[in-house]
Write a protein that binds this DNA or RNA. Structure first.
Lengths: 140, 140
DNA sequence: AAATGGATTAGACAAAGTCCAAATTCTAGG
DNA sequence: CCTAGAATTTGGACTTTGTCTAATCCATTT
């Protein structure tokens, strides 16, 4: 179901499939997100990508993440008041948000049903529905 | 059902009922939120409270909002990546989020049912569930 | 190899929010 | 009424996240 091996070559193909010119930096950023399959902040991505020798500037990280988002390659997750997370999973899904650690855990949307939402205001359409289950350790 | 008249005197009582010492500044901030029954950012509250003659510093606005939150008088709403909104409605409810304008509209949680959520990770309890319906004008 | 246009860069900038020591205000006791 | 101590507020420096811009770099085409 999921493509299991994420190589840098795969990333180039993936970018092209989304009409994105695969440059060095873009491949590295995509690789950071997809190889890990984790929710990362721009800052974390910066650190990962520049781990050994500095390669990619802050501006490029932000530019690239926004570009990926526009081309539906990744998704923004807004749960932490201080920073945005980027999610390589663009399929419909929701999140557990660990209030203690800031960790995010995916919830497949396939099983989740939401009923009883009121009608939308006139002239509006739904862009998406996010469910965030805020959780914390029981011994807190 | 809802207390319809929010006066500054009421605010003092409300604060006391939540074990908060009702000071001048705190009353004004509570009044700004409750009289309007709107979702406001810290910045908007700053502006409202200091409209005529400057009364309240930035530090106090932030301190006070966090204090209110800790005492369950108001709630944070995290939907806009750039700022936190504060919501005087602490009852269970969800939100429409207008992506064009940034406007938030309450959805009463009474009618909404969510089914099929997976079991929580071991040792975790739910603190709350937020549903955000992102909407936009249909002619966009 | 020159031209063209897209991509990247450094660094200045902006906005949200935090922190802290000093100043102010409040309260209770005398 | 006066004052000591506690609680609250304040200004301003600071941090962090993210944006912007003009200059530079690079890849491709001819």
């Amino acid at each position: 179901m999921e493509k299991q091996n994420y190589t840098r070559d795969n990333m180039a193909d993936l970018l092209r499939a989304h009409d994105i010119n695969p440059t060095h930096q873009r491949i590295e950023i995509a690789y950071a997100l997809f190889a890990r399959q984790e929710h990362l902040s721009a800052d974390q991505i910066m650190t990962i990508v520049n781990d050994r020798h500095s390669e990619t500037s802050k501006a490029t990280v932000y530019n690239t993440l926004n570009l990926f988002k526009q081309h539906n390659l990744i998704r923004e997750v807004i749960v932490d008041p201080s920073k945005v997370f980027y999610d390589p999973n663009t399929g419909p899904h929701h999140h557990f948000f660990n209030l203690e650690t800031g960790e995010l855990i995916d919830i497949d949307a396939g099983d989740v049903q939401i009923q009883g939402l009121p009608a939308l205001p006139a002239g509006m359409v739904t862009e998406g529905v996010d469910v965030i289950v805020r959780i914390r350790p029981s011994n807190a």
